[in-house]
Amino acid sequence: MPLSEKGLVISNQRVGRDLWEMEFLAPGIAAESKPGQFVHIRVGDDHDPLLRRPLSLYDIDQNLGRITLLYKIAGRGTNLLSKFNPDQLIDVMGPLGKGFNLLQGRRVILVGGGVGIAPLLFLARELQARQNEIAVFYGGSSSDEMCSPDRFVNLGVGIMTATMDGSTGFKGLVTDMMKTSIDPLSIDYFYTCGPEAMMAAVAEYAVQHDIAGEVSLEEYMACGVGACLGCARKLKVTDNAYVKICKDGPVFPMHDVELR
């Protein structure tokens, strides 16, 4: 069950050019959290900016009740978030939405672009615990805008990076790197989160090779709980009707989604 909690900030630091990592204690939310779900955060006490900001669960330590977020400064809200100091309280709703389908004992590929890598770390942790064989492909524009792959490495999960400017790893699109690095016959499932063009390239490849998978989508959100119908999106399978990203997603079967 989702809940509202005042999290206690433990740390909040810059880990890249516009990239930050925040850790806070919110044991109630942490205990309920599944990979792919998100939290809805109030970034200030007054009413401008007004709405909460949705952020993915980057990592969870259920024993400590600790939630870690990875966020990119995109505007005023995330900028205010970066001003939180240790020992401050933060108003959090969560976990919200439906997360990823957690397979058992399969061979899976995780593809993250930019800050879209965030939900894939917690996912990798849970997939690892379920005896899956995991390979992570992580793309970004430049190394200084990406988080360190260490957290994946520490899980014992293989990760390859690609940057558009070649500052680290493969130079070019992460999806191009992925295509040349994997054997589609040995893949059971894809999980992807990032820019839609990137997810579309993953989905296209998956269709070609008849592999299933899931994508995590974004849309502007107000309520985050399915009450306002603000985050609607059409799926291929639902004709004219819309689904709610916040409640029916943000994770959807890859082949149900019309990627832009």
Partner: peptide
């Protein structure tokens, strides 16, 4: 079925829907 996305947008101390 409702309108096309985006359906909401935050404005100073308010929102459009």
């Amino acid at each position: 079925y409702g309108n096309l996305a985006p359906r909401i947008y935050e404005t100073p101390a308010g929102m459009l829907n």
